[in-house]
Structure formats: structure tokens, C-alpha cells
Design a protein around this nucleic acid. Structure first.
Lengths: 339, 339
DNA sequence: CTGAAAGCGCTTACAG
DNA sequence: CTGAAAGCGCTTACAG
């Protein structure tokens, strides 16, 4: 049993079987741990494999088992800067978790309307399951995945209880943030929201509403601006809110927030003295802003890892939670500190 | 030849062969287009496949051909916000190009020091080639890929001429940008640069130096600040440059630039009247900044697509350019418009 | 032009 | 406890 590093010729299961004078079956069993095998031969095989650097061909293994050991990660091709840290961080969590379970991650980008790339991946049998990284209100990808009846989990929230979901608890988080602002005598807190077609924006809005309800303060619809996905719309919203004499503005995300801060600065409105400002999502974008902005902090990497774990468990036939919510951290900074 | 949509039982090559009373070989040939086959039977097979929605199992095909029809995309797990649009956009270009060639993209995140995930992917035989999305000066991944002698192309620049490379022409772009600033009487333009361990930062610096050389202006090393990867370092650099009475500051990227703008604003230094500012990289981050910032614009999606195309051609044994540079666009905005 | 057969590198009943 | 054989779904010399 000598160690041979014979260039880059890949060694196969047959090679190790012959070298050890056992059958392929035995080698396979030693590796997989399935089936009866004596501890002796098992160690012998493992030692040889270790010494000769044998790596089973996962593709062949998959073919025999009708598995691929791949999962697909679907990310929207059209997301904006503010969403990127989320995708980036969750992506890393997913990759690491997958790796740890000997799975690999296939990347699929979809463009809002078309799920063509995802469909191709599925009909080509290249994946055992799928992670969706964002839900739209009417989601093509979800429709497709259900039709194909392929295991998938949504890293986000859906009204459809039959869909496996893992998400940050945006609703509770946003509610607590707004409660924080309402608790200091303020009753008029405006909301500048994002696209209503994106589920998470709806969820955040619900959190906003919860806070008012819990505090027994009447919700004024004139203080809520949705679909603010462009600077001009945000500008209009800010101007209206200023005219409405709001005591605070909550922004759907950091990009919205940085624009809001800028508009307020132009109009020489002091934050937080005249108007408090907070963001529902904390990225590095606001790290250098003055004043520092109160916002919610989520652990996106952990979210990705957990989502991946749920999918893999589901694929392996284990029982999984239908819906899991992860915690948040309310980070109070200067922008909501009224003296 | 009736169309059957029999639930979700996947149909195999054997099924279509039997239905048509031909051999698997014939079906295979009709699909691949390889080998002699009568146009008649070819059409017959193709029609049946179309009607019955047969999709060849790419995994099995790959096993037989010792291919995977997958490529790996390596992205750094530790990149900061400013790099994300680049990764996001190039990623999309890569995915689309791969899809168009019936290839799929596997995602690998690496953490500076460790190439473990990449290595796993390779020894597991899961990919035919690799795209590297960033080069470090001492790059672990490159070392690994060379050792494994697996096809790869770098979406970036390397001194090593033996590495296939596709990159934006950062050097020419940066040179032109600095020339633009020098051409208006200014001779003292400072540089605030990023990590010296990242190759592209070196390339940008070369462009900066080229501009001085071409203009016959002496380069002052006291105006060059590198490794400015934290706010405090940037602050120090800006303060020194202000004391040096520079007429302009070029920033390595948009994050650096937005911080620089902020610091100048705090000190009530007018841009561009007192100091011009420009960025070597244009992202959406500066879209809303006042004044609008002059910077370079690259087509990252096209870069990704081309990189992917080069890799696929190389894998298929075609001749490819050793190094390709893509163009840029100098976008002149208010921040460098001195009257 | 077409097909039988061997093979890609594994797994897994089945038999012993 | 171990192995021969069939099979996963394809491709591709080889022979006709």
C-alpha cells in the first residue's frame, strides 16, 4: 500500500478496490458508512483513500442516487444597491452551510417577469432544491416551483402557508422601532415605503401599523407614502411630510433614508431636533452619515445559513418548521435622540 | 406518436427510442447532431422530443463525456459595499452568457486566505472551469487553480501573462480622468487609494501616474495615499491634501469619494471651486450626491459576459485572446467643472 | 445510415 | 461480512 501521487490522473473507486483486493461495493460501503462492513476493512479502505487522495466523483454518485448535491439560489437580476448587502451576506451564509453539507450552490438570476433561467436549471435536473431570495406579491418563480413540485424554501415571507419560509422578523422589528419613536411623546411619524410589489415592504408596513395600534394612536394614511422607488417620489413625500408637521420619518431602507437626510439638509431642517429619522434596514451606507441613523440590524448571513439548512433537511426528508423568524436588533442612534 | 403529459415522470432517452422503434444511439445522434443520420429520422426524433417534452439529463450526458457543463464563479466573501454593484452586474452577465451556452454557474465564496471551498468544488469534479472575479497581489486561488491545471480566466488583471484575463481598461480610464483634471491648469491632483493588495487598485494608480508622465508634470509622492480602507485613514489623507493645497482629489472608488465629500463639506471647503473631486469608479452610490461627481463608467455586465465567453471557448479548445481590455466612459460632472 | 455493446464512476438490491 | 451484477441516463467507438 504505497502512496502514489501520479500526476493528475484522477483515481476511481475501481482503482482503490483493485489496489486493496476488495470489491467496489466494499469501498463504497466504507465511504458511505451504509451496509455491513467489518471495522477492519473499513479502516483499511479509509486509510488508503486518505493516503492516495481519492475523491469520489460526486456527479457519478449523484447519477446513481438520482441526486445532484446541488441547490439553486435565485437572485433578482434587477435589485438596487441597497439590497446588495443582503444578497451578499445571505449568499455567503448559504454557501458555507451548503459546503458544510457537501452541497454546492448554483446561481440563477431572474428578471422579474421571466423565470426562464430557473426553469432551464430545473428541467435539466441540475438541482435537488431551490432557495428563493426575495418574494414578489405575484411571484413567477414560486408558481413555477410549485408546478414542478421541486423542494424549495423562501428566504422571505409569503402569505401562502404551504411555502417553507425563513425570514428576518421585519414586522416585529419595524413595530419596535416605531414604538421607540412614538414612546417619546411623538404621535405623528411618517412612513416612506418601497415598492408594494415586494413582499418585505408590505411586512415592514404592517410593523409600522402594529406600533400605532398597540400604542392606541390613530394611524393617519396621509403620512404613509409607498412605492417611493425614485428620488423625485421621495422628495415629494418628504415635502408633504414636512408640511404635515410630522415629528419623525421612518424610511423603508437605507437608500431612501440617505436621500431623505439629504433633502432635509437642503431645507435646513435639523435632525433629530426638528424631525427624527430612522431606517428599517441597516447597511454600511449610513455608517458615515451625520447624524448617525437609528435603524434595525439583522443577521443576514445567519438567515442564509438557516434557510439553507432548512432546505437541505427538507430534501433529506426530515421534518422542518413551516416558517421560522429570526430576531433583530434595534440600534438607537443620534437621529432619534430628542432631548 | 401521441403527446402524453404523464404527470412528472421524467422521460429518458430509452423511452423515446422505444416509442420510435429506433436505438438510443439514433436518438442521441438526432439531438447532438454528431454522427451520420438521415434527415428523415432526425426530424422524426426531434418532433417526438418536442411533443413529449423530453429533456436530456445533463448530468448523465456529462458523466459520459467527462464534462459537467458547469463553471464556478469565485467571489470574495469579504467585499465591501462599493464592490457589490460590480459583482452583481458582472454576475448577471456571466449567468446569462453561461445559460445561452447551456452551462450553469456554481457559486463559490472565498475568504481572502482560504480557498477551501474552491478546492472542494474542483476535487469533486463539479466544474469544467473557473472564473475569478478579483485578483489579489498574492492570490491563493490562482495558485490553486494553476496547481490543479483546471481552465480558468481572471475577470481582472494579473502580471502573470500566462493567465487568461478580461478586464475593464482601468489604467487608460484613470489616466484619461486625471488628464482631464490636469488639463485645466491644475498640476497638483492628489490620490486617495485602496488596499495595495488588490490588483485593480494598483492598475488605477498606474493610470494616475501615466497621466502625469504624459503631461510632463512631476509626480509628487506626498500627494498619494494608499491603503485608505477606513474612514480615519481617509480623513487623515484629506487633511494632509488640504494642507498641501491640492487643486483636486481623485478617489479610488465611490465609497472613498462619498467620505471625502463629507469631510470637505464639514470643513466648508467648496467642491469644485476650492478643490475638485473625482472618482475612479461610478456606482449608484454617488447618484444623489451634490455636487454630482465626475467618474469613470464601465459596463460590468458586458465584462462578465465576455469573461464567460472566453472561458467557455477555452474549455471547448478554441483559441482565445490571452488578454482582453474593455472600454470605459469618462463622465464629466459638476465636481470637476471649474469655471 | 443505424444499432449493439461497452463505458463514464458510482450505488444498491440480491445472494451467499 | 463481502461481492457479482444490474442500473443511473447518457455517449461513442466499432461493426455492419
Amino acid at each position: 500500500m504505497e502512496t502514489v501521487h501520479s500526476g493528475n490522473k484522477k483515481i476511481t473507486i475501481l482503482d482503490v478496490a483493485e489496489a486493496l483486493n476488495v470489491s467496489k461495493t466494499t469501498v463504497s460501503r466504507a465511504i458511505s458508512g451504509k451496509g455491513r462492513i467489518s471495522e477492519d476493512t473499513r479502516q483499511k479502505v479509509l486509510a488508503y483513500i486518505e493516503a492516495n487522495d481519492y475523491k469520489p466523483n460526486v456527479i457519478a454518485k449523484g447519477l446513481a442516487q438520482k441526486k445532484t448535491y446541488n441547490i439553486a439560489l435565485v437572485i433578482p437580476g434587477d435589485c438596487n444597491l441597497v439590497d446588495m448587502p443582503f444578497f451578499q451576506n445571505s449568499m455567503q451564509g448559504i454557501c458555507e452551510e451548503a459546503s458544510a453539507n457537501d452541497y454546492d450552490v448554483m446561481l440563477v438570476t431572474t428578471t422579474g417577469s421571466s423565470s426562464a433561467n430557473l426553469e432551464r436549471m430545473i428541467v435539466n435536473n441540475k438541482v435537488d432544491g431551490v432557495i428563493l431570495s426575495r418574494a414578489l406579491v405575484k411571484d413567477q418563480n414560486i408558481l413555477l416551483l410549485k408546478a414542478q413540485s421541486i423542494p424549495f424554501v423562501l428566504m422571505g415571507t409569503s402569505q401562502d402557508a404551504k411555502i417553507l419560509q425563513v425570514d428576518n422578523d421585519h414586522r416585529a422589528g419595524c413595530s419596535e422601532l416605531v414604538r421607540h419613536m412614538l414612546s417619546r411623546g411623538s404621535t405623528r411619524i411618517g412612513l416612506i415605503g418601497g415598492s408594494r410589489n415586494v413582499v418585505v415592504n408590505q411586512t415592514r408596513r404592517q410593523g409600522y401599523e402594529d406600533a400605532f395600534r398597540n400604542a392606541g394612536i390613530r394611524l393617519e394614511n396621509t403620512l404613509i407614502f409607498e412605492d417611493c422607488d425614485r428620488t423625485d417620489k421621495i422628495r415629494t413625500a418628504v415635502e408633504r411630510l414636512v408640511r404635515e408637521n410630522v415629528q419623525g420619518i421612518v424610511c423603508m431602507d437605507d437608500v431612501v433614508c440617505s436621500i431623505v437626510l439629504q433633502i432635509l439638509a437642503e431645507r435646513e431642517i435639523l435632525v433629530p431636533q426638528q424631525i427624527q429619522v430612522a431606517s428599517f434596514y441597516d447597511s454600511t451606507l449610513l455608517k458615515n452619515s451625520r447624524p448617525a441613523v437609528t435603524s434595525l440590524l439583522f443577521d443576514d448571513k445567519a438567515l442564509g445559513a438557516l434557510t439553507c439548512r432548512v432546505l437541505l433537511r427538507y430534501i433529506q426528508g426530515e421534518k422542518v418548521e413551516a416558517k421560522t423568524l429570526l430576531g433583530y436588533k434595534l440600534v438607537i442612534r443620534e437621529s432619534t435622540l430628542v432631548c
